[in-house]
Design a protein around this nucleic acid. Structure first.
Lengths: 165, 165
DNA sequence: CTGAATCCCTTCCGATACTG
DNA sequence: CAGTATCGGAAGGGATTCAG
């Protein structure tokens, strides 16, 4: 197996004290949650779950549908989703071999939630694009101002030096 | 700047034909959406948005609260969230310097959605853990069976060879 | 057809050191 | 305090090859 099941050291909970914030999800709860979140929020997992909504697809169909995924990453993604109980894998003994993938009931509930997130993104993507553009403009202006200031200081310093000598 | 704004080549839309699935988010829509999703579904972004719910925090406060983030990643995360218009950054001219971070209205709406995702994860984390355990058991059993089978074949082959010679 | 295994390059990210 | 710059190790991920 390429990667093991174990996490890198220090990834998980060791903060026991510090009851720092009870109003919401604090850092302690993220030990398990964060790891799962990283998995399902993954670029390919998201797409696979999306594409498997209410239907069954074969490996190659998924491969073509996702369009950009390598067979390696698709296989890995599907294996993990299967392991997490979100996708069911059915092997048909046949020649040529045929493997079907479909969402489990658990996976179907995730689809709803993910869908909400994607909807938010679609709804606000223009605002985000606008915010980025505005930010980039501000940053560029600031940088230009700094460069002008630097040039000014440089000129002054040269003048002083010239006056001295 | 360490990483530029531009994406890696071939990351975005080039699939124009293939009107393959109109019922849901197909691959074409993900050009923009996926990129934004990757950003907001990021491990640190998620936590930062969570912690900034309805309050203002300073850099160091966030650093301590997240507990595990490096100053590098926190700074990067905050910069990106600011650029995306999700977080407002306020610099107070003072000694020592003080910088406050808070959610923008846009960021606040994201908080609700993210919260739904995290709630799903918390709700189903036990099911996922169970699924993983079951999967691992099945896999181990399969592997053991394969090894027994291999040993059996090996023994037969040796017997045949011994009979021949 | 459906993968698993290998090679190899790129990106991510933490540790460290340095500015304002 | 609030960052930025640089480096090196680790992980991500594509291309290719092999197997069932």
């Amino acid at each position: 197996m390429e990667e093991g099941t174990s996490q890198s050291p220090g990834y998980c909970c060791d903060t026991d004290g510090d009851p720092y914030d009870a109003r919401q999800w604090d850092t302690r709860n993220d030990c398990e949650v964060r790891q799962i979140l990283d998995r399902i929020a993954d670029k390919w997992s998201l797409l696979v779950i999306a594409l498997l909504d209410r239907r069954t697809l074969r490996f190659t169909e998924l491969r073509r549908a996702v369009d950009g995924v390598s067979q390696r990453m698709l296989a890995r993604t599907l294996r993990q989703l299967e392991r997490d109980g979100l996708v069911r894998r059915t092997v048909h003994a046949a020649v040529p071999p045929r493997v079907d993938y479909e969402l489990t009931p658990l996976g179907a509930t995730l689809h709803t939630t993910i869908r909400a997130l994607v909807d938010w993104t679609e709804t606000h993507q223009n605002e985000i694009a606008a915010a980025r553009a505005a930010y980039d403009v501000r940053e560029a202006a600031e940088q230009a101002a700094q460069e002008r200031e630097a040039a000014r200081r440089d000129a002054i310093a040269r003048d002083v030096l010239a006056g001295r000598l």
